[in-house]
Simulated scan of single mutants.
Amino acid sequence: MNRLAGLRQAQGIERVIDHLQGCLRAQQTLPDVAALASIAHQSPYHFQRLYRALTGESPGQTLDRLRLLSALQALQQPGASITDAALAAGYESAQALARRCRQRLAATPRTLRADAGLRQHWQRVLAQPPADDNEDKATPLKVEVRALQPFEVVLLRAQGAFGDLDASFGRLFEWAQTQGLANDLLHLVGIAIDDHRDVPARAHRFDCGIGFATALPSLPSPLRRQALGAGPHAVVRHVGPYEQLQVVSDVLMRDWWPGSGHALAEAPLYFHFLDDPEQVPAERLRADVCLPLAG
């Protein structure tokens, strides 16, 4: 099971990368995440997390790497202009390519075109995903598979830096107080829409959620309700800064799930926060990473 599941995962990721390369060559509109998940034969709920766990980068970072590689390959062609290379690789202009080369390669397209050794060095680097930095090679996870009881939460979509999520939870608490629900609080959860390691802080999206011991009233926009916790889950208790939860999720998806014998449920992975960061030191914060499994 381990070998077969791992092979299927790898083949799915290869299909996505091949498709992205084909889109670049044909200068086609790039597919969205749902379409990429379909190509990989993965659930949209889990595709991005699984993709990063297996490759070390997000789909967007893969695209950025392949686009730069395509531009460098075009620059080595005799007579190719910088504008030609930029447009062939999907950049809007020579200026856009130059800006990205300076940011990522610390060199200008003109320098890269003239210096074959430097260009070939970066072609070798960009041809492969980033090397594993061993950030998630700590003690193996202790995973418990257990049936959880379903519960309902009120969600609020937050956008901004991961460290600023307290403000969104604060808005939820204020709403709960107006509804007389503050004393019935049972659950504090989070659902990562984006990985805070992969996107700019301003673009990071995260669903903040709270659940109660009593039934929920009608919800005003932008609040919404969602059921969580039904059925079997793989649960990992994390102790430490909440910023590390994405790393724990990577290890769970990459190292535990393929050989577990479990299929993934059509439901999101979520974090069940057990401590208040304002009251507990970061190194002692507890949270459960909950991965829904098909029953």
Results as ranks from 00 to 15, higher is better:
8 R>W: 11
8 R>Q: 11
13 I>H: 08
16 V>P: 05
21 Q>E: 14
23 C>H: 11
27 Q>S: 05
28 Q>V: 04
29 T>F: 14
30 L>V: 09
30 L>Q: 11
37 A>K: 10
37 A>G: 07
39 I>P: 01
40 A>Y: 00
42 Q>C: 05
46 H>F: 02
48 Q>A: 13
48 Q>V: 03
53 A>L: 07
57 E>H: 00
57 E>A: 05
58 S>P: 08
61 Q>C: 02
64 D>R: 06
64 D>V: 01
64 D>W: 06
66 L>P: 04
68 L>S: 00
69 L>F: 11
70 S>T: 07
71 A>S: 07
76 Q>S: 10
76 Q>F: 04
78 P>V: 00
79 G>R: 06
81 S>M: 02
83 T>S: 07
83 T>V: 07
93 S>K: 03
98 A>I: 01
99 R>W: 04
99 R>I: 07
105 L>W: 03
108 T>W: 04
113 R>A: 11
115 D>K: 09
118 L>D: 02
119 R>S: 14
120 Q>L: 15
121 H>K: 02
122 W>T: 11
132 D>P: 12
133 D>L: 12
133 D>E: 02
140 P>A: 02
140 P>V: 01
141 L>E: 11
142 K>R: 14
144 E>L: 14
145 V>S: 09
145 V>N: 10
147 A>C: 14
148 L>Y: 04
156 L>T: 12
158 A>Y: 08
159 Q>M: 02
162 F>L: 10
165 L>E: 15
165 L>P: 10
170 G>A: 12
170 G>L: 03
173 F>Y: 13
173 F>H: 13
174 E>P: 04
174 E>Y: 06
176 A>G: 01
176 A>W: 03
177 Q>R: 14
178 T>L: 12
182 A>Q: 15
184 D>T: 15
186 L>M: 12
187 H>C: 05
188 L>T: 10
190 G>Y: 03
201 A>E: 13
201 A>V: 07
203 A>N: 11
204 H>I: 01
205 R>K: 08
209 G>H: 06
211 G>V: 04
216 L>M: 04
217 P>K: 02
218 S>F: 12
218 S>C: 14
220 P>F: 07
220 P>D: 10
221 S>L: 12
221 S>K: 15
225 R>S: 15
226 Q>R: 13
233 H>S: 10
236 V>G: 12
238 H>V: 09
240 G>D: 07
240 G>W: 03
241 P>R: 09
244 Q>L: 09
245 L>S: 02
247 V>H: 15
252 L>F: 02
252 L>Y: 04
254 R>P: 03
255 D>K: 12
259 G>P: 04
261 G>A: 00
262 H>E: 10
266 E>W: 05
268 P>K: 02
271 F>R: 10
271 F>Y: 06
277 P>L: 01
282 A>Y: 06
283 E>G: 13
290 C>R: 12
291 L>K: 05
292 P>Q: 06
294 A>F: 15
